[in-house]
Amino acid sequence: MPVAMLPIVADDELTPRLAEVLRSSRLSRGLSTAALAEASGVSRASIVKLERAESQPSAALLGRLCPPLGLTLSELFARVERPREDSGRLLRAGQAPVWTDPASGYRRVSRSPLAGGPLQLTEIELPPGASITYPADAYRDIHQQVWVLAGDLELVEDGRRHELGAGDCLELGPAADCTFTNRRDRATRYLVAVARR
């Protein structure tokens, strides 16, 4: 039975909130924009633009900014999306906003009811031909599993290549550079489960 792809949802309202969360996270760590630039390898000018909501970051860029801020990508988005009113322990299918990576077209939606809980579930849709690389620091201190819901996914973890099909689930090993690639002509959907170690 085919599995429906994620809906296209406007995420313009997330850009100012993302800017606010990045800035407050940086300040709470006592980092200047120059210090964050040095720690992440992202230019100071780019960080300033992001914090002013003048540009939308790619998923890979956020993956570089999160470790010096003491966050996982899932935690960052949990703060951006804010706890949903009256959601409690239940998150209805249409309640979570969808964020789209401007560089790759990758879309992510949080499937966890409570922001900041011990387990974060994120559904990803990776378009045909898209590829995203995250640095090893993005995986520091977390336990992560990737479960393919539809399509095929190539995951290269510290040089080791994994070919995953629908129904396959991979537990990532120690923190390493990871590249997620969809080499097919149709979108791939997968669920990422992240827990702090």
Score class of each variant (00 low, 15 high):
residue 177 D to R: 12
residue 132 I to W: 03
residue 69 L to P: 07
residue 18 L to W: 11
residue 50 L to S: 03
residue 192 V to M: 12
residue 12 D to R: 11
residue 164 L to M: 08
residue 33 T to W: 00
residue 152 D to A: 12
residue 81 E to S: 03
residue 44 R to Q: 06
residue 107 R to W: 06
residue 134 Y to K: 08
residue 67 P to I: 08
residue 83 P to H: 10
residue 45 A to R: 15
residue 10 A to S: 14
residue 39 A to N: 03
residue 20 E to A: 12
residue 83 P to D: 09
residue 117 G to Y: 07
residue 194 V to Q: 06
residue 18 L to S: 12
residue 165 G to A: 01
residue 58 S to D: 05
residue 195 A to M: 11
residue 159 G to N: 04
residue 112 S to K: 15
residue 128 P to N: 14
residue 60 A to C: 04
residue 56 Q to R: 12
residue 11 D to N: 15
residue 16 P to G: 11
residue 101 D to R: 10
residue 54 E to Q: 15
residue 67 P to N: 08
residue 42 V to Y: 06
residue 152 D to E: 15
residue 181 T to W: 06
residue 62 L to V: 07
residue 133 T to W: 07
residue 117 G to W: 07
residue 45 A to V: 13
residue 152 D to R: 10
residue 19 A to E: 09
residue 158 D to L: 01
residue 125 E to D: 04
residue 108 R to D: 01
residue 182 N to T: 13
residue 4 A to W: 00
residue 56 Q to A: 09
residue 111 R to M: 08
residue 62 L to D: 04
residue 67 P to A: 10
residue 196 R to K: 08
residue 189 R to S: 12
residue 88 G to W: 09
residue 24 S to T: 11
residue 83 P to F: 07
residue 74 S to G: 13
residue 122 T to D: 05
residue 110 S to K: 14
residue 41 G to V: 11
